[in-house]
Simulated scan of single mutants.
Amino acid sequence: MEITFSLNEIDNVAELIIASRPNKVMLFNGEMGAGKTTFIKQLCKTLGVTEATSSPTFSLVNEYETTDNQIVYHFDFYRLKKETEALDMGVDDYLYSGNWCFIEWAENIASLIPESHSTVTIEVLEDGKRLLKID
């Protein structure tokens, strides 16, 4: 699926993505500043997270609970130097928990990603809109 959207349409796009029933482990690709974190924040809101969400750049993972008691994990592995750092934090427990796992910079833990996952790529277009591709 490919969707071109402006930032004021992000809530509708997040609803479309959740309605498409992606795998709960979702990898987010795109350049720095493409809007990965912004889109993940909207996905959290769409799923029913009511608390403030933020980038886990320094903590590596943030955990949120939805209004219907689902758990959402948001990972940012940008600062990771080795996959063993992710193993040390127990990443396998998160990835195979059956909960939502939104992962930025997943290429830094490539061999640890479950076979069953969805990949979202966000690209900034010349007009400022975003092109989102999901597979």
Rank of each mutant, 00 (worst) to 15 (best):
M1G: 12
I3Q: 07
F5M: 06
D11R: 13
V13R: 08
V13M: 07
E15V: 11
E15M: 10
L16A: 13
I18V: 15
R21C: 12
R21F: 08
P22M: 07
K24S: 03
V25N: 00
M26C: 09
L27E: 00
N29Q: 12
N29W: 07
G30D: 09
T37Q: 12
I40V: 15
K41P: 02
K41E: 13
L43P: 04
C44D: 02
C44W: 03
V49C: 03
E51K: 14
A52I: 12
T53N: 07
S54M: 12
T57V: 09
V61F: 03
V61G: 01
E65I: 10
E65A: 07
T66F: 04
T66S: 03
N69H: 14
Q70E: 15
Y73W: 01
Y73E: 01
F77W: 04
T84E: 15
T84R: 14
E85G: 13
E85V: 11
L87E: 14
D88E: 15
M89L: 14
D92G: 01
D93R: 02
S97F: 06
S97P: 05
S97W: 06
N99H: 15
W100M: 09
C101Q: 03
E104C: 11
E107Q: 15
E107I: 11
E107N: 14
E107D: 15
I109W: 01
A110Y: 11
L112A: 10
I113L: 09
P114V: 02
E115L: 10
S116Y: 08
H117S: 09
S118V: 09
S118P: 10
T119P: 00
T119G: 02
I122T: 10
I122L: 14
I122D: 06
E123G: 03
E123L: 12
L125S: 08
K129V: 00
L132H: 04
D135Y: 12
